[in-house]
Write a protein that binds this DNA or RNA. Structure first.
Lengths: 133, 133
DNA sequence: CAGCATCCTTGGGGATACTG
DNA sequence: CAGTATCCCCAAGGATGCTG
């Protein structure tokens, strides 16, 4: 997208429902548990179900399955079923999913640069910043 | 956003609970309703409460207040109270919040480039892609 | 106008148990 | 191992009414 500062896409100003062009991406990529899953797949490569389950502690198999299905449906993750005994299933980032890498990198960068600012803002707010009005 | 790419904040790599360094950012910036709010503020500048409420249709005043408070606490949004009759309150993006601009731009770019891929993946999955296993 | 208080509903996820 | 099936719970969010 070239000159995006001039006009924020017709939809955004027209359609009140969406209100912002990044919401769909947020729903797809940054909904609950998806970031850890994508990150894990991105950082450690192809993995089996249990590996993911162990890596992302506190996630339940049910929810992990749900999220993986969603990501598979959205084309961000590829599921490979090996009909063996015991069964083996592997998950990996898809081509499309890989296009998210620079995004993730930039977010990580922002985190490294600004997360402590947020922390300080919070402390300041909690100490004396309560809004009057 | 200068250097600091070296260390992704000790928490993220140490604490298995988080599992990924971008999760904190997701919680702060991409939690429910925050993207439309930040986008609206970013795209249309300083606005009053009602303006935001109208712009982001379907949000209730209660939730809008909650989210605005959260964003204010996190230092991403600045609230200005004008003690007049009737009361007037204005919200705007903070300096810190403005550092998110390139991030938002990149997400919008990804959306423009890849959202239809996701759509197609979904259709394909719904038609014949149901996982066997 | 810009909210806060209160009540109420919903569905996302947790826990547990069970199969191919 | 890689899930599905069930039951259950609670907290986020909606609806409504009231103030400074």
């Amino acid at each position: 997208m070239a000159g995006e500062t001039s006009r924020p896409a017709a939809d955004a100003t027209t359609d009140p429902e969406l209100a912002c062009p990044i919401s769909p991406v947020v729903d797809i990529v940054f909904s609950r548990w998806t970031s850890p899953i994508l990150w894990s797949l991105h950082a450690f490569g192809r993995q089996r179900f249990v590996e993911l389950e162990r890596r992302i502690e506190k996630i339940t198999p049910k929810v992990l399955t749900q999220r993986l299905r969603q990501l598979e449906r959205d084309g961000l993750v590829v599921r490979t079923y090996h009909p063996e005994v015991p069964p083996r299933v592997e998950y990996e980032i898809s081509e499309l999913g890989r296009t998210l890498s620079p995004l993730f990198a930039q977010i990580a960068e922002w985190a490294a640069a600004n997360l402590d600012h947020v922390e300080r803002a919070r402390r300041h707010y909690d100490e004396a910043g309560a809004p009057r009005g």
